[in-house]
């Protein structure tokens, strides 16, 4: 079976690029999953699965806390449902005898997992890996995000039927924060979701205020140390990229009048444009 053409319980996958190994996939190809046109973008290090968010039935699959790697991004002015797979976690079959069998995973397994998450189905036989396995896959040093004077820990959230890596990117955000500041934080989060593979962002309400959380949900994931380690790196890099900016923007004590003015000016221009149209 071609690695790019995998039958799934909930949908049929077909591909114009069915030729053998994933390493031979180049450029773009179209897949169809049910009624949705897919687009796969193959880049040197990542494969991106994308399709039109507005046409997705199960939008909850991209929400914070949902199983799997689906996330909502903005791409070329369109809202897309996206999922990223790193090439290096995939088993290319070239050195199977030399590697730890649990290190990489097959593209078929990744696609089945993606399909289940998209359909909102769970794998009845999947259980989270043991703590010891997770600790071996993700060294402790990979669970810390340190940027300048800011330091955060990536939590491994493990419960029956769920495993996720989560890190707070901004905490105690006052729900009454000026609109432009909230808008800026939302834009930062959306930008980071788009730029950094696997990581998705969302807000959580806490008694002390809003939390901006970054997570990679590995619920139902194939058991691959490379995948789990990449997930930890993805959270660390994505959070690290916006940590300082989010910290400054979310702190109402820091005067950022110029940015606020620019935002208000842009809003006003948009409104005027809307009125003329």
């Amino acid at each position: 079976m071609s690695k790019a053409s995998v039958p799934n319980q909930s949908m049929t996958w077909s591909s114009a690029a069915t030729a053998g190994e994933p390493t031979r996939l180049t450029g773009h190809c179209e897949l169809r999953a049910g009624l949705y046109p897919w687009r796969i973008t193959v880049r040197p290090n990542w494969i991106h699965f994308l399709f039109d968010y507005d046409r997705v039935h199960n939008k909850a699959c991209a929400a914070l806390g949902a199983p799997g790697l689906w996330k909502k991004i903005q791409s070329n002015g369109m809202t897309m449902l996206a999922r990223d797979v790193a090439w290096w976690v995939l088993d290319d079959g070239s050195a199977a005898d030399e590697q730890d069998a649990s290190d990489s995973c097959h593209l078929e397994d990744m696609l089945r997992w993606a399909g289940r998450c998209l359909a909102g189905e769970s794998d009845p036989i999947w259980v989270p890996p043991a703590d010891a396995w997770v600790k071996e896959a993700i060294p402790r040093a990979c669970l810390t995000v340190r940027i300048g004077g800011l330091l955060w820990r990536i939590a491994v959230v493990s419960s029956e039927g769920r495993l996720a890596l989560r890190c707070v990117a901004a905490q105690d955000i006052d729900a009454g924060l000026e609109r432009w500041r909230m808008n800026a934080i939302e834009l930062l989060a959306m930008d980071a979701s788009m730029l950094w593979g696997m990581a998705r962002f969302g807000f959580e309400e806490k008694p002390t205020g809003l939390l901006l959380v970054c997570e990679v949900d590995l619920t139902g994931a194939p058991r691959s140390k490379a995948l789990f380690r990449t997930a930890a790196d993805a959270v660390a890099v994505a959070v690290g990229a916006l940590l300082e900016t989010a910290d400054v923007v979310s702190d109402a004590r820091i005067d950022l009048q110029s940015i606020g003015d620019c935002w208000l000016q842009a809003q006003s221009t948009e409104e005027q444009k809307g009125e003329t149209e």
Partner: peptide, 19 residues
């Protein structure tokens, strides 16, 4: 007063140096 309990002391030291 903003650090988590489970961060390694070495990372805390470097973070404090930056602060």
């Amino acid at each position: 007063e903003d650090l988590e309990w489970d961060v390694p002391a070495g990372d805390v030291a470097q973070t404090l140096a930056a602060r």
